[in-house]
Design a protein around this nucleic acid. Sequence first.
DNA 1: GCGAGTTTAAAACAGTCGTTTAAATTGTAA
DNA 2: TTACAATTTAAACGACTGTTTTAAACTCGC
Lengths: 223, 223
Amino acid sequence: MPVKAHNQETRARLLAAAAEVFAEKGFEVASVREICAKAGANVAAVNYHFGDKRNLYNTLLNQLFADTWNKRAPLLPASAPPEARLRAFIQAFFDEVLSSDYDERGRAQAARLYLLEMARPSEALTLIVRDYIRRDAEEIAAIVGALLGPSASEAQVTLCASSVVAQVLYYLQSAAIIACLAPDAPPPHRRVAQLAEHVYQFSLGGLTRLAAAPPPAKGETPC
Amino acid sequence: MPVKAHNQETRARLLAAAAEVFAEKGFEVASVREICAKAGANVAAVNYHFGDKRNLYNTLLNQLFADTWNKRAPLLPASAPPEARLRAFIQAFFDEVLSSDYDERGRAQAARLYLLEMARPSEALTLIVRDYIRRDAEEIAAIVGALLGPSASEAQVTLCASSVVAQVLYYLQSAAIIACLAPDAPPPHRRVAQLAEHVYQFSLGGLTRLAAAPPPAKGETPC
DNA sequence: GCGAGTTTAAAACAGTCGTTTAAATTGTAA
DNA sequence: TTACAATTTAAACGACTGTTTTAAACTCGC
C-alpha cells in the first residue's frame, strides 16, 4: 500500500488513457489492458495505483467533473435580471455539453461519460449528482422561479426547469440521431450560438405563457 | 443453413430472452450464455437460429421497433387543427417513451434499447432511424411548421421541432438523474398526463413567441 | 419402421477478461 | 555503498467470452 508515491507520472498517464477509453466504450466494455497499453504501462499498473478497475473509473470521474465544473464560465449573480441569468445559464450549459473533442478534450470526455452513465448508471452517478449536478438544478430552478413569479408552484417550477435543460441535453443525448437524420448539416457544436439563442427564445415563450396562466391546484376546479 | 424451420419455439424464446438481457446490459455486455440460459436453450442455439450474436441483436431490434410502432395510438390527420395535432403527438410520444416495465414490457424494452443505442450507436441504429424515427421527425416538423406559419424557415422549424421532442425524451434519457434528484417523487411514468399537458403548454408558448418574431435571414441585418 | 432433414446437446476451440504473484528494477536516504 | 521502500515487470491465475465441432435426439413424409 503506497502511502506516499514518489513517481506519479504513470498514475497520471493511466488517468489520461482511462479517460479516452472509458469515454469511448464505457466502463464495462473498456479493458484494463487497452488502458495500460495506451498509457505505456504494465497491465498490473492499474491495480497497483488504483486498487482495481472500478476505483480507477470513480477516481477519473471525480477528477474530470471537478475540472470541467471549475472551468465553467461564471454564472450571473441572483441580483441580475432573470432573463439575463437564463440566457447565461443556457449559454454556459451549451458550452459544457457541446465542446468539441479537439479543443476541449476534457469537457467532451466528461460529457460522454455523463451520457454513458445515463444509459447505465453506476455507483459513481450518485456522487456526481450530489457534488455537481444538484447545484445546476437549483440554479436553473431559481432562475425559472423568478421568471414564473411567486405564485408558481414548486411542481411547476420543476417542470419548466426540466423543459429548459431538456432542450440543451437533447443535443448531447440525441447526437447520434441528429447526425443520422441530417448528415449534411453542420454538427451542433459548430452552432452553439444559434442553438443557445433559440432555446432561450423558445423557453422565454413557454415561461411567459405559463406565468400568465398558472394551472389550478391539483384535484380542485378553479372558481 | 435452415431454409424451412419446423420448430420456431426456441427461436421465439431466444428473442424474448435476448430482449430482456440486451435491454438491461446493452449489446456488448450481454452474453450469449446468459440469453440461452434464460431461454432454456443450449449455448449453440443462438448461432444455429441467428448465425451470430450481432444478427440476433439486429433481428430483435427490428421486431421490437416494428411491434411498438404499430401499436401506437393513431396520429391526427393533417386536416386537424395543428394545436390538436401537437397535443396528440406529445401524448403518443410520452406513452411510448414512458411505458412501465410491468404492463408494456415490449415498449419499455424498445425504449431502453433506444437509449443504449444513443449512448453507443451500432449499425442497427441507421435502419431504425430510416424505418421509424424519420417518420416521426417529419410528422412533428409538419405540425410545428403549421403552427409557425409559412414565413418560418426550414432551420427554424427544425429547431422548434427539436425543442418539442427534447422535452419528452428528457424523461427517458435523464431518468437516472431525475430519480436521483427527487427520489421521493412519483416516477415520470406515473404522471404522463401531467407531463404531456405541461410540455404542450410550454411548447405552444415557445412556438407562438417565435411565430410572432421570426429571426432575420442569417448573415443579413433586418431593415 | 425407415431414412432424410431439422433441431438440440455436450464438449471443446482459441481468446480475452480482471487480478495476483513474485521477482526485478528504480530512486532515495543513511 | 548499503539498506529500504516505491515502482515496474513478466508470467500466470481462474473465469469468462463468442463460436465451432461432433454426435445424438428429434420430426416428418414415405
